[in-house]
Protein backbone atom coordinates (compact mmCIF):
# COMPACT_ATOMS: atom_id res chain seq x y z
CA UNK A 1 0.00 0.00 0.00
CA UNK A 2 1.17 3.50 -0.78
CA UNK A 3 -0.72 6.14 1.19
CA UNK A 4 0.70 9.57 0.55
CA UNK A 5 1.74 8.82 -3.01
CA UNK A 6 1.84 11.79 -5.36
CA UNK A 7 0.45 11.90 -8.87
CA UNK A 8 3.73 11.76 -10.80
CA UNK A 9 4.87 8.75 -8.87
CA UNK A 10 1.50 7.06 -9.22
CA UNK A 11 1.53 7.72 -12.95
CA UNK A 12 4.97 6.19 -13.30
CA UNK A 13 4.01 3.10 -11.32
CA UNK A 14 0.48 2.58 -12.62
CA UNK A 15 1.27 3.13 -16.26
CA UNK A 16 4.34 0.95 -16.19
CA UNK A 17 2.35 -1.99 -14.85
CA UNK A 18 -0.87 -1.49 -16.84
CA UNK A 19 -1.39 -0.23 -20.34
CA UNK A 20 -3.20 3.10 -20.51
CA UNK A 21 -2.73 6.81 -20.70
CA UNK A 22 -2.37 9.55 -18.07
CA UNK A 23 -5.89 10.58 -19.08
CA UNK A 24 -7.27 7.22 -18.06
CA UNK A 25 -5.42 7.38 -14.74
CA UNK A 26 -6.79 10.87 -14.03
CA UNK A 27 -10.27 9.67 -15.01
CA UNK A 28 -10.18 6.91 -12.44
CA UNK A 29 -8.63 9.18 -9.80
CA UNK A 30 -11.44 11.68 -10.37
CA UNK A 31 -13.96 8.85 -9.91
CA UNK A 32 -12.31 7.89 -6.62
CA UNK A 33 -12.23 11.51 -5.50
CA UNK A 34 -15.82 12.11 -6.56
CA UNK A 35 -17.14 9.18 -4.62
CA UNK A 36 -14.96 9.87 -1.57
CA UNK A 37 -12.72 6.87 -1.76
CA UNK A 38 -9.61 9.05 -1.74
CA UNK A 39 -8.77 12.71 -1.07
CA UNK A 40 -6.14 15.02 -2.42
CA UNK A 41 -3.94 17.42 -0.48
CA UNK A 42 -1.26 19.78 -1.65
CA UNK A 43 2.26 19.52 -0.25
CA UNK A 44 4.38 22.11 -2.01
CA UNK A 45 3.98 21.52 -5.72
CA UNK A 46 2.81 18.01 -5.18
CA UNK A 47 -0.74 16.68 -5.22
CA UNK A 48 -0.73 13.93 -2.66
CA UNK A 49 -3.41 11.26 -2.71
CA UNK A 50 -4.64 9.68 0.48
CA UNK A 51 -7.33 7.20 1.53
CA UNK A 52 -10.41 9.25 2.40
CA UNK A 53 -10.37 8.29 6.09
CA UNK A 54 -6.74 9.25 6.65
CA UNK A 55 -6.05 12.45 8.59
CA UNK A 56 -4.48 15.15 6.41
CA UNK A 57 -1.61 15.85 8.85
CA UNK A 58 -0.75 12.16 8.94
CA UNK A 59 -0.95 12.07 5.16
CA UNK A 60 1.46 15.02 4.92
CA UNK A 61 3.95 13.27 7.24
CA UNK A 62 3.60 10.06 5.26
CA UNK A 63 4.38 11.90 2.04
CA UNK A 64 7.42 13.64 3.51
CA UNK A 65 8.76 10.45 5.05
CA UNK A 66 8.63 8.70 1.67
CA UNK A 67 11.86 10.54 0.95
CA UNK A 68 14.96 8.58 1.93
CA UNK A 69 16.96 11.50 3.35
CA UNK A 70 13.96 12.88 5.26
CA UNK A 71 13.51 9.43 6.67
CA UNK A 72 17.15 9.26 7.79
CA UNK A 73 16.95 12.70 9.45
CA UNK A 74 13.81 11.74 11.35
CA UNK A 75 15.27 8.42 12.45
CA UNK A 76 18.35 10.26 13.71
CA UNK A 77 16.27 12.73 15.69
CA UNK A 78 14.17 9.99 17.22
CA UNK A 79 17.25 8.12 18.35
CA UNK A 80 19.07 11.20 19.66
CA UNK A 81 16.23 13.51 20.74
CA UNK A 82 18.19 16.57 19.56
CA UNK A 83 20.96 17.08 17.05
CA UNK A 84 22.99 20.04 15.87
CA UNK A 85 21.89 21.07 12.39
CA UNK A 86 25.39 21.32 11.00
CA UNK A 87 26.25 17.82 12.19
CA UNK A 88 23.28 16.00 10.71
CA UNK A 89 24.60 15.63 7.14
CA UNK A 90 27.85 14.11 8.44
CA UNK A 91 26.04 11.69 10.67
CA UNK A 92 23.72 10.41 7.95
CA UNK A 93 26.42 10.57 5.32
CA UNK A 94 24.59 12.67 2.73
CA UNK A 95 25.44 15.82 0.81
CA UNK A 96 25.21 18.97 2.88
CA UNK A 97 22.96 20.88 0.45
CA UNK A 98 20.56 17.94 0.11
CA UNK A 99 20.23 17.70 3.89
CA UNK A 100 19.79 21.43 4.40
CA UNK A 101 17.11 21.53 1.73
CA UNK A 102 15.18 18.82 3.53
CA UNK A 103 15.66 20.33 6.96
CA UNK A 104 14.07 23.48 5.60
CA UNK A 105 11.10 21.48 4.30
CA UNK A 106 10.74 19.64 7.61
CA UNK A 107 10.85 22.94 9.46
CA UNK A 108 8.30 24.47 7.07
CA UNK A 109 5.87 21.67 7.84
CA UNK A 110 6.63 21.79 11.60
CA UNK A 111 7.75 18.18 11.60
CA UNK A 112 10.97 19.23 13.24
CA UNK A 113 11.58 22.36 15.26
CA UNK A 114 14.56 24.27 16.57
CA UNK A 115 15.34 23.63 20.17
CA UNK A 116 14.20 26.67 22.16
CA UNK A 117 17.21 26.59 24.49
CA UNK A 118 19.89 25.69 22.03
CA UNK A 119 19.07 27.44 18.80
CA UNK A 120 21.23 25.31 16.50
CA UNK A 121 19.90 22.04 17.76
CA UNK A 122 16.95 20.40 16.05
CA UNK A 123 14.34 18.08 17.49
CA UNK A 124 11.08 16.46 16.43
CA UNK A 125 7.92 18.43 17.09
CA UNK A 126 6.50 16.82 20.24
CA UNK A 127 2.91 17.25 18.99
CA UNK A 128 3.66 15.05 15.99
CA UNK A 129 6.18 12.71 17.54
CA UNK A 130 3.70 9.99 18.39
CA UNK A 131 2.26 9.98 14.85
CA UNK A 132 5.73 9.94 13.31
CA UNK A 133 6.86 6.97 15.42
CA UNK A 134 3.69 5.08 14.51
CA UNK A 135 4.24 5.78 10.82
CA UNK A 136 7.87 4.71 10.98
CA UNK A 137 6.90 1.54 12.82
CA UNK A 138 4.24 0.77 10.24
CA UNK A 139 6.52 1.35 7.28
Amino acid sequence: MNPGVHFSNLRKKALSEEAGSSGQLVWHLEMLLKFNYIKKIKVGHYSVLLPYELDEDVGRILFILRDRINNKIIHLLIENETFIKSEIYKKIDEKREDVYYRIKTLLDYDIIILNQDLDKEMCINNDLKEDIIKILDAT
Binding site: S8, N9, K12, Y46, R66, D67, R68, I69, N71
Partner: peptide
Protein backbone atom coordinates in the same frame (compact mmCIF):
# COMPACT_ATOMS: atom_id res chain seq x y z
CA UNK B 1 8.11 19.72 -10.78
CA UNK B 2 11.66 19.34 -11.97
CA UNK B 3 13.13 15.92 -12.57
CA UNK B 4 15.45 16.41 -9.61
CA UNK B 5 12.59 16.93 -7.23
CA UNK B 6 10.84 13.89 -8.64
CA UNK B 7 13.89 11.81 -8.00
CA UNK B 8 14.22 13.22 -4.51
CA UNK B 9 10.77 11.99 -3.62
CA UNK B 10 10.99 8.59 -5.23
CA UNK B 11 14.25 7.45 -3.81
CA UNK B 12 13.08 6.17 -0.47
CA UNK B 13 10.59 3.74 -1.87
Amino acid sequence: ISDDEMKYLDENN
